[in-house]
């Protein structure tokens, strides 16, 4: 769906994107994470032909970008940073205008497609109010509707959750999951770890323009080979498990072990009461903080 090879973008002295090899497969829900200023937006803009690469190659939907951009973009829906619309026109008029502006949207199906897109984002009841009277959340929904009007195969969303309230964010996540289930590939960039963790199946992490990690979320969150045990009989458990306890914090033990069922059976057989047992997995936050440095909006002296 999206493949980049050694993709690099330099703005004057700043290397915004540095030799990125992105690989988004068909059907993915790909989350691109990274601190502010790590190059997420620049990367998304390059995929859409808005910003031209300094070097490297981009392939979207199997075609080179920006070479065959006019064949690619009609099948791509995009939301880049904030949504934008003509403020003195109504939401519907805006969608009509954007759809009519480029090739790929049949005039015959336009009304139906606009109605469908508005219904998908929960704006089916909008009236003729101009967009300037919309709330931030409504604008965000309208922006997403504009991305959906063409019924795209690929959605490129840059920071899409901004401006939505918690319910809006949940609706939005559900909508993206439904679209993905119906076959739409989703590429989403965000600095909201929790959103990506809840929605995505695959993550990439950008740090200072470099793609420092790209992996399936399930692999990243695979069991670490440790089990966390809560027990009132902590001292006996430590004695019983011998050298396998890595850490003890009161009633909480971190045990190096692969099989929680076997561990539980062994503890209980020896009369150690177990009040709680969890397979340890790394959170996405731990993974990301591990591989990234401080964001570029943090200005301080570098300590070595």
């Amino acid at each position: 769906m999206i493949v980049t090879r050694r993709l690099t973008k330099r703005f004057a002295a700043v290397l915004a994107v540095d030799a990125v090899d992105l690989d988004v497969r068909a059907g993915d829900r790909y989350g691109l994470l990274g601190p502010n200023g790590s190059g997420k937006t620049t990367l998304a803009r390059m995929l859409l032909g808005l910003v031209y690469a300094t070097s490297g190659e981009i392939e979207v939907l199997g075609k080179p970008v920006p070479g065959k951009i006019n064949q690619v973009l009609p099948q791509v829906g995009a939301l880049v940073e904030e949504p934008a619309a003509y403020p003195h026109l109504s939401g519907r008029a805006n969608l009509r205008l954007f759809d009519a502006a480029g090739p790929g949207g049949s005039r015959r199906t336009r009304r139906q497609r606009i109605d469908d897109a508005l219904a998908q984002v929960g704006l089916e009841g909008i009236d003729r109010r101009p967009v300037k009277a919309y709330s931030l959340g409504m604008r965000q929904r309208l922006g997403l509707a504009a991305a959906l009007v063409r019924r795209p195969r690929l959605l490129v969303l840059d920071e899409p959750g901004n401006g939505l309230d918690p319910r809006g964010i949940r609706d939005f996540r559900q909508l993206l999951a439904d679209l993905n289930a119906a076959g739409t590939t989703i590429f989403l960039s965000s600095h909201l770890l929790s959103e990506v963790e809840l929605l995505c199946t695959r993550v990439g992490v950008l740090d200072r323009g470099r793609l420092v990690l790209q992996q399936d979320l399930a692999e990243l969150q695979a069991p670490t080979g440790r089990i966390i045990v809560q027990t009132p009989d902590a001292a006996r458990a430590v004695a019983l498990l011998d050298g396998r306890v890595e850490a003890r914090d009161g009633a909480r033990l971190v045990v190096r072990h692969d099989d929680p069922a076997a561990l539980n059976a062994r503890l209980v057989a020896d009369g150690v009461r177990v009040s709680e047992m969890t397979v340890h997995r790394r959170t996405l936050e731990e993974v990301v903080l591990d591989v990234t440095s401080a964001g570029s909006d943090q200005v301080g002296g570098t300590r070595q």
Partner: peptide, 14 residues
């Protein structure tokens, strides 16, 4: 300035 330029270009409008 209004931000609509990028949305026109990704429509795509050459």
């Amino acid at each position: 300035t209004a931000g609509t330029l990028r949305y026109l270009l990704v429509r795509p409008v050459g």
